[in-house]
Amino acid sequence: MQRDEKMKEKGSGLSRRTFLKVSGISLSVPVVLGHRTIKVAGAEVEVYGPGKVPIALTVNGAKHTAEVEPRVTLLEALRHELDLTGAKRVCDRATCGACTVIMDGKPVYSCSVLALEAQGKQITTAEGLLRGDRLHPVQQAFIDNDAQQCGFCTPGFVVACKVFLDKNPNPTPEEIQKGLGGNLCRCGTYVGVRAAVAQAANQYPNRKGGGNQSTSKGGR
């Protein structure tokens, strides 16, 4: 490593086989639980991994701890460590939106956030939109407008719509069309989703059922 980087054994205090070398970075092979501290630019900086390190995540208002490697994404930590499987892994490349969660009020692809980075942030998943057994208005609107079929994209879509409405409480149809480009659905539920967003925004009553020879318009 360049300049005066010094290593200081700290943190977990576990032994490591390989140390940082002057010319470059080498990885320690054994599993190191915890972190070590190195001195760079006059300050002590903690370096984690590559083995498992303890993390603490605040998800849906509750604090959780786990041990993961730095390469574990927030999505994988939620699913594998916290058993919160509402966020789905589909494209795993920041495209499809099935893994969408809210991080400090913003919609993010949890497949593209490391679990380590997400520490200290407020994370909300689709599960976290419930108040007890009560559904969030966006969730209720998804049901009323049948905005799900197989439902695999649905939790991510619900979360994306919730943040969208937080920011645009009275969206125009055009804003709805343009504001939800980060989620993909394979079954084709977009007509229901558009209607659900409009309903959740306006809280207008559900379409009335019944009747023969029905024509249904999915424009909006």
Binding site: I38, V45, Y48, E69, L116
Partner: peptide
């Protein structure tokens, strides 16, 4: 696998 650091200054960052 990789190791991870989260510096708070740009000087620290480039040193890492």
């Amino acid at each position: 696998a990789f190791e991870y650091a989260s510096p708070t200054t740009k000087e620290q960052a480039v040193s890492l």
